[in-house]
């Protein structure tokens, strides 16, 4: 497979996974922002901090103006991480790799591109339709995942696509969890209250699973166990890392490579999480650990792209 194509497929899926995480979080936040929150802070600042490239002053000034927030997040031209930018980048990558994508996958990306570039959005986001718009985008990203799953050939390209997807998902989970821990520390909220954790779990589509599987009242420990270490939870850190390990191994086998440093470096990172002991962490040390993990994953991604995607 052409290095350039592998690179494009990798990034196509990274961007689409980001769009998926972001639209789900916006959707959850939108609904929960209608309730009075526990910390009394129902603004959009944390979301803006997670997903925009804007300054702290802007965050502060618009955080209670929902239409303004939504516009920044979804179509803000000055926000380098708006949904519009993300989907446009995804399409750019899809376009360059169009001959390696199925017609169905390409059409889905292209359709979303036209949706997010629809000029009427600017007006419609001021109205009651906003919720339906967010929901629709969120659904479309899920449709993308489904179409990819049922139409794409399980070749080399598939493995690179999934590497992109799970690296992105892992980073997303880490940053959302870290944001939540930050709020807890800063606002001194009672970490034993499940309602505080509900938001995080909903953003990661894991609330129902939590209710079914964790019975004790030690919410903080339970939630951290689920989002970091639960092998069955598709948005947990360990789940993503296990998938990355699997696709990395597939690529190694297809290429017939032996003994590459890439696998070794990833293995080191993977074991850090695999063999971590939650009990030994404080909130503060956990935040540091997660930050370090995100950095390690970033380094690994750079190494990965140097190894496989170097073409220009």
């Amino acid at each position: 497979m052409l290095s350039r194509i592998a690179d494009s497929l990798f990034w196509l899926n990274r961007y689409m996974e980001r769009a998926d995480g972001m639209t789900r979080l916006i959707h959850v936040h939108y609904i929960l922002s209608m309730d009075k929150s526990l910390s009394g802070n129902s603004g959009w600042k944390p979301v803006l901090e997670l997903y925009t490239s804007l300054s702290a002053e802007v965050h502060e000034s618009i955080q209670h103006n929902i239409p303004a927030v939504l516009k920044k997040l979804l179509i803000g031209e000055d926000n380098l991480n708006s949904l519009q930018v993300i989907v446009s980048r995804a399409r750019e990558n899809a376009r360059g790799a169009q001959d390696q994508l199925t017609k169905e996958v390409w059409e889905q990306v292209n359709q979303m591109y036209h949706m997010v570039n629809d000029h009427s959005l600017k007006i419609r986001l001021n109205t009651n339709e906003a919720m339906a718009i967010i929901e629709n985008f969120s659904n479309q990203t899920v449709v993308f995942a489904g179409i990819t799953d049922i139409t794409m050939e399980r070749g080399l390209g598939w493995n690179f696509m999934n590497l992109g997807k799970f690296i992105e998902r892992c980073l997303q989970t880490i940053s959302i969890v870290n944001k939540e821990l930050e709020i807890i520390t800063e606002h001194g909220v009672d970490a034993r209250d499940i309602l505080q954790w509900r938001y995080l779990l909903l953003c990661l589509s894991g609330y129902e699973m939590h209710l079914k599987n964790y019975r004790s009242q030690e919410h903080e420990k339970n939630v951290m166990d689920q989002v970091l270490l639960n092998e069955n939870f598709p948005h947990s850190v360990i789940y993503s890392l296990t998938r990355i390990n699997y696709y990395l191994e597939n690529i190694r086998i297809i290429h017939g490579e032996v003994n590459i440093s890439l696998a070794r470096d990833f293995g080191r990172l993977y074991s850090k999480v695999k063999y971590m002991e939650l009990q030994s962490f404080t909130v503060q040390s956990l935040r540091e650990f997660l930050q370090e993990l995100a950095n390690d994953l970033g380094d690994f991604t750079r190494e990965l792209s140097q190894h496989y995607f170097n073409y220009s």
Binding site: L2, S3, R4, I5, D99, F160, I251, H255, N310, S312
Partner: peptide, 25 residues
């Protein structure tokens, strides 16, 4: 796509000793 052949750009190709190669993973 219809012919099942690779779509390449100039930067994907390189010439070495009068032979053309494409840069793959």
């Amino acid at each position: 796509k219809q012919m099942g052949i690779a779509l390449v750009e100039g930067r994907d190709l390189v010439v070495d000793n009068h032979k053309v190669y494409m840069k793959t993973t």
